[in-house]
Write a protein that binds this DNA or RNA. Structure first.
Length: 109
DNA sequence: CATTTGACTTTGA
DNA sequence: TTCAAAGCCAAAT
């Protein structure tokens, strides 16, 4: 526990269906507003065994790594769309409606 | 122990 | 307002 990764995994796993969180926001919850990169780092090392909804974790632009995801941003968009996430005309996530607001997070330190 | 990298963010022009 | 470059944190090598 205590590790940045652990917290990231925990928070990501707490993301409700139909909502998405940004790296910067998660990083801010962890106490590092500038550690957005580290969040992505955790995702990179995120074991599939945790079933982390990494597709619900996107950057501030509403996009994510096209080459590191299941098969492309189009694929992810379909998944998020099914999850209930709202998309805009630009093909990006509507952060104004689908952004996740963390409330009760049990982060073990 | 020091250096590089990385699924980002913010600031500058 | 849009495009481009620098910066910061933590883990991996």
């Amino acid at each position: 526990m205590s590790s940045f990764f652990e917290k990231v995994y925990h928070i990501v796993s707490q993301i409700p269906r139909g909502k998405v969180a940004t790296y910067g926001q998660i990083a801010g919850i962890l106490g590092n507003p500038r550690g957005a990169r580290t969040v992505g780092w955790a995702m990179q090392a995120a074991p599939e065994g945790l079933k982390l909804p990494c597709h619900r974790v996107v950057n501030i632009k509403g996009e994510m790594a096209p080459g590191f995801i299941f098969g492309g941003r189009d694929r992810q968009r379909a998944i998020l769309e099914v999850e209930g996430v709202i998309f805009n005309e630009e093909g990006n996530i509507d952060m104004a409606k689908s952004k996740w607001y963390p409330v009760n997070l049990n982060i073990e330190e």
